[in-house]
Design a protein around this nucleic acid. Structure first.
Lengths: 194, 194
DNA sequence: AATATTCTTGAATACATATTCAAGAAAGGA
DNA sequence: TCCTTTCTTGAATATGTATTCAAGAATATT
């Protein structure tokens, strides 16, 4: 027996970045071999084909993002303070003007959702689980009596998801803090004010 | 002298729909000749190349959307009622699950903004002018004393733009009225409540 | 050390795609 | 009616791309 030589996580993160910058269609296998350091044969051996590598990269993206969120919200602070920091992070990502800081899920859904049912299903599922994670945070805020008891956590999370989608798109056209921060601030205010 | 035979608007709208469904990269010249009824030579004669046709299609899209908005807001009703209907229209578009009802500007910006400065500039400019049009509507609402005098029309318009971006993305993952309508309703409430 | 197994390499293949161009068709002016 | 001009046609070209595969290299086992 002989083991594969490459570091799968490194390869997937490199592919991830390439797909985020170029999109799926405009990323060539040549781009991917350059970014990952793998030769075509190795890629096809490990991931079947270009789409297989793409899906694996999306799954790695979801893994990374999920871990990041768990770290951000695992502490003894108020859930609202954590939410404020989380929105601050998204503002920062928007300011960075760095495509690798954007959302691979919504980007892929926008590019391929209409043509590829599998990609649509995977991205939608991952975005839903993000929505669920946010729901639980609002649920905790309700238990901590930080928001009214009659609040609908699911709905608040959905509204926040909507706001973040919107914030990220605004950031594409106007990546400046004078625009993004007031939007994020009002979004948080509107969420907790009933 | 001899005049061109084809109807430019029809051609541009056909190309527009094709680009909306497939995206730019995945739309082949063959797709475009089929959709427009033009032969390659005619397309290259009239629009230089694929990108030229794409830009012309985007400009037609902006023209159509601008006219649509002017019609929706040109009446004697309250600006807020008009805004409510406008959001209702966007909810309807989201429910339709029809790619040709989505926003070509944000889709193109997401796909190509990172790679093509010209496309980025054009789409950003058009999205800005949409923002401006909404600003004027809030300005009118202020004059009609429908919203507080100290309201910042620019900011309200920016927040509405953010909300609509978000609403459209939510619609991609959950095109059902039970999800979209409450989001749109809260968005409008949050806008006019200070 | 020898051998079997698995991984790696990268040139070759097969296919798709954007673009060109020269010949043909239609329209207007003399 | 003839001729010039302009538009149309679509096959040909040149380029790019995803994928394959057979030979070579590395590892583990006997």
């Amino acid at each position: 027996m002989r083991h594969a030589e490459f570091d799968k996580q490194k390869v997937l993160r490199a592919a991830m970045c390439t797909f985020m910058v170029n999109g799926y269609a405009k990323t060539s296998m040549q781009d991917l071999t350059k970014a990952t350091g793998l030769h075509p044969g190795s890629i096809y051996c490990a991931f079947d084909n270009k789409k297989g590598l793409f899906i694996a990269a999306i799954e790695q993206y979801q893994l990374d993002r999920t871990q990041q969120m768990q770290q951000l919200f695992t502490n003894e602070r108020s859930a609202l303070d954590n939410l404020r920091d989380y929105l601050g992070l998204i503002v920062q990502e928007g300011l960075s003007c760095d495509a690798t800081q954007s959302c691979l899920l919504t980007k892929s859904l926008s590019e391929m959702g209409e043509q590829d049912d599998q990609i649509k299903q995977i991205t939608c599922e991952f975005l839903q689980s993000w929505h669920q994670a946010l729901s639980q945070i609002f649920e905790r805020a309700k238990q901590q009596q930080l928001i009214p008891q009659q609040s609908d956590s699911q709905f608040l999370a959905q509204y926040l998801v909507m706001g973040i989608y919107g914030l990220r798109t605004v950031a594409t056209t106007q990546p400046c803090i004078e625009v993004l921060q007031p939007l994020a601030d009002k979004l948080l205010r509107d969420l907790i004010s009933g």
